[in-house]
Design a protein around this nucleic acid. Structure first.
Length: 417
RNA sequence: GCGAUCGUAGCUCAGUUGGUUAGAGCGCCGGUUUGUGGUACCGGAGGUCGGGGGUUCGAGACCCCUCGAUCGCCCCA
């Protein structure tokens, strides 16, 4: 409980600590390692941008832009927004920095994002994502490489029971034709749809397809399918993506009703979703998607740039961290405990030497003298060096690994000096 | 934006149908015991019972408002 006059944390923010912080770090470290295997280049992006970067790129009518952005006016009168996603900012950077010269450009980043939503399990107002984009590559091979990387990240995190759900939205014309057919189809039965879906009919008819409401689901099965509206080129593109995934050994599943919420998606759309009834699904509560993305060939134009094909994905670090299991903080190598205040400076010298040698060490020299050794034991270390009565005694934890090399390192330090 | 559940020490929680001075375990600090020892015992610090109002002779318990948390809807990572 906070004291009366202590300010509280902002709703939907988290103070991550202990095993959860370790799991978080494990996700980021794994991502960084895999990203280098695929030769994605690291970028660091601003946390805020001019509001129009997001409103133009993501789409004014989307929930993200219309009601979830943290926007404010700065002292110069510009409307700025805390980034709700990475892609729009990266696209802006691509255009303003002339990164066309590096195309096709593979970049990766990670960090905090902000969305004004009701927090719940796996969902926060400040959350964190890992993100990968390939910009300036029109070939389906780019989609394959990007997805292979996503798949490897998830595998290397040791996450099981998660499947790649894949769909195509076709090119711009295919998507529009499909959308029109869906509106026509659902309009005919509008009165029987859920209230939410009646509204979706106006705002985002594609989303009716993955409604959870039974009233909608009975119509969804017979709704028009994207495949009937795909141009020959769009179909060939999707076939190339799927056969490429097969060749890369990435398992996937066709998800005809998978659509993505943001306006800029074209062609490939995908999400990694826990299998129903799996431990992963259970751990995530009502959130299902842990990684999502797709191709966004039209985005650069919406920001005033030349047409530039691109694909990307992002994954929620918190959601991934919930699936990677316990990650304990690493064991301390050495604890130096001084039970005799005469020896404090010798103890301090020893700890410094041990740390300089690359071993982790805790130093205990305060509190009741009789209880210091108990404290040292409690830390849980591979070695305890106890100093008292002018003497130094060493106790090894027989159970811990590589004690020989550790002992050798300690001997080489000549701690008596 | 909507709904449900919940807020008592640093943490996990007790607290009878409303009834003296609000408790326990763990953790923390100190002491005794032990003396290569993670033990046992004793003591201590730490609480405006989330906040405000109301009902009552009397509220941590009941009512209203508010803030926050958790979970769900919407949407998303």
């Amino acid at each position: 409980m906070a004291k009366g006059n202590t300010p509280q944390a902002i709703r939907g923010t988290q103070d991550i600590f202990g095993p959860e912080a370790e799991a978080f770090a494990f996700v980021v470290e794994t991502f960084e390692r895999v990203r280098k295997l695929y030769r994605f280049r690291r970028v660091e992006m601003p946390v805020f941008e001019k509001t129009e970067v997001f409103s133009r790129a993501i789409g004014e009518t989307t929930d993200v832009v219309s009601k979830e952005m943290y926007s404010f006016e700065d002292r110069g009168g510009d409307s700025l927004t805390l980034r709700p996603e990475f892609t729009a900012g990266i696209a802006r950077a691509f255009l303003t920095n002339g990164w066309q010269q590096h195309a096709p450009l593979k970049v990766a980043t990670h960090g905090p994002l902000f969305r004004y939503e009701r927090p719940q399990k796996g969902r926060y107002r400040q959350f964190h994502q890992i993100d990968a984009e390939i910009i300036g590559a029109a070939e389906p091979q780019a989609d394959v490489e990007l997805l292979a990387m996503a798949d490897q990240v998830i595998r290397e995190l040791g996450i099981e029971g998660v499947t790649l759900h894949l769909n195509t939205l076709g090119d711009g014309d295919s998507r529009e034709a499909w959308r029109a057919a869906l509106v026509e189809y659902f309009s005919a039965v509008k009165g029987e749809l859920s209230e939410d879906s009646q509204e979706r009919l106006e705002k985002n008819p594609l989303r009716i397809l993955d409604s959870k409401d039974r009233r909608d689901q009975k119509f969804v099965a017979d709704a028009p399918k994207i495949d009937a509206f795909l141009s020959a080129e769009a179909k060939a593109f999707f076939d190339a993506v799927t056969s490429g995934l097969d060749a890369a050994g990435v398992k996937w599943k066709r998800a005809e009703s998978l659509v993505r919420g943001l306006d800029y998606y074209r062609h490939t759309a995908f999400e990694f979703i826990p299998d129903e009834g799996s431990a992963a699904a259970d751990a995530l509560g009502s959130q299902s998607t842990i990684l999502g993305g797709g191709r966004y060939d039209g985005l650069m134009e919406s920001l005033g740039g030349a047409p530039t094909p691109a694909v990307g994905w992002a994954a929620g670090i918190e959601r991934l961290a919930m699936l990677v299991g316990d990650h304990q903080e690493s064991q301390t190598d050495v604890v130096v405990v001084v039970e005799d205040d005469e020896m404090v400076s010798q103890g301090q010298s020893a700890v410094s030497a041990i740390r300089d040698a690359g071993l982790s060490a805790e130093f205990i020299a305060s509190g009741g003298k009789k209880k210091r050794f108990d404290k040292a034991v409690k830390v849980g270390s591979r070695v305890i060096i106890a100093m008292s009565d002018g003497e130094r005694r060493v106790r090894y934890d027989e159970g811990s690994p590589d004690l020989e090399s550790l002992a050798a390192t300690l001997r080489s330090l000549d701690l008596d000096a």
